[in-house]
Every structure is written in C-alpha cells, then in structure tokens.
C-alpha cells in the first residue's frame, strides 16, 4: 500500500470513529429499552475498538498470532463476565 493510500485509509477510519461516536451518543439519548441500549452500545464500541486495533495498531497487516494475542484479554474478560452473569441468574 502506498503512503498516500495509507494516509487516506487512516483519515477514513478517523471519520468512521467520529461518526460511530456520534451514533453512540444518539443511541444513548434515544430512550430505548435498557437491553436494546446495551446491545447497540456494546456493538458500536466493539466496532470502534476493532477499527483502532486493526488499522491504527496495524493488526490488519501483522502476523495472525499477534492478532490472536491481542484478542485474548477481551475474550477472557467477556468469558469472566459471562460466568458472573450465569452465576447471578442461578
């Protein structure tokens, strides 16, 4: 990828992050149910975090093992949270 193309991609990602943040704020003030609010906000935050990781932290172009290493803490945290939710609902 040429430097110009890469800079253009970075600016597109910046625009996407900006738009997604605005979307998050809009969703937060829409007055939808708590379950829908949590689902939408978690989805939008995951997309934003994914964009930063993949493009700004270059995981898109790195070795797959580095990508797997990077997702490990998020998977472990999500797993831990899932166990706690299941424990609480018993």
């Amino acid at each position: 990828m040429t430097t110009t193309a890469r800079v253009r991609l970075y600016l597109w990602i910046w625009g996407a992050l900006f738009a997604l943040t605005l979307a998050e704020i809009a969703v937060a003030y829409m007055g939808i149910s708590k379950a829908a609010l949590v689902t939408w906000l978690v989805l939008l935050a995951t997309v934003k975090a994914g964009l930063v990781g993949l493009f700004y932290m270059h995981l898109r172009w790195e070795h797959i093992l580095l990508g797997l290493l990077a997702t490990l803490p998020f998977l472990m945290t999500a797993g831990f949270a899932a166990v706690l939710i299941m424990e609480n609902s018993r």
Partner: peptide, 13 residues
C-alpha cells in the same frame, strides 16, 4: 482503545 470502552460502559450505559 481503552477509553472507547470506558466511555461506553461508564458514561453511556
């Protein structure tokens, strides 16, 4: 990246 998560979980939800 961490701030993106904190902003969502602590401020918006």
């Amino acid at each position: 990246l961490i701030w993106i998560l904190i902003f969502t979980f602590v401020y918006l939800i």
